[in-house]
Design a protein around this nucleic acid. Sequence first.
DNA 1: CGCGGGATTGACT
DNA 2: GTCAATCCCGCGT
Length: 196
Amino acid sequence: MNFYGKRLKEEFFMEPTLTVAKNLLGKVLVRKDERGETRVIITETEAYLGFHDKASHASRGLTPRTKLMFGNGGHAYIYLIYGMHYCFNIVTEREGYPAAVLIRGILSETEFPVKSETRFPTGKMISGPGRTAKYMNIDKFLNGEDIVESEKLWVECLPQSVNLKKSKIKSAPRVGVDYAGEWAKKPWRFRLVTSF
DNA sequence: CGCGGGATTGACT
DNA sequence: GTCAATCCCGCGT
């Protein structure tokens, strides 16, 4: 039930955002708090990138809220939505370019992932950004956390995560951004459809 | 300073 | 399928 990998460094988060969004699938998200270490596999992400992406908070420019998105990659960007749910993002790319990846789904309480499985191993699928943040005990106090150096929140790469086949990733339009016009149609939502 | 709406979820008809 | 919950941000006044 516990699986350990190599911690991701800054370079990982400095890659193009669509690449990072896909590469985060199958990685291990780790949260260390008073409960201990919670380790889950990332199964769904969404990318928000650039100045003009109307679905992104950053399309309104640099504001107190979005300044983290304009910052250097590898930091947590967490905000409250609908007055009750937190959304956890990891900022990507260089300072000055606004981009982040929203973590939308995880697999918990799973066996050590087996390479070439055609389905997910037994586990608990947690779907949706609000549920994901809640399960991982992520809230506004972790906003800005340095994912590269933090002892509370980080990401690891398993040996199995490295050569994840493209066929195991499904892309689709992003959820809940109908107001974004043409930008809502971009297939920037990524899901792991089977295991490794 | 007030107002509109949100990268959502869960309860209910 | 519909709808309310509930806080914060961004923008117009």
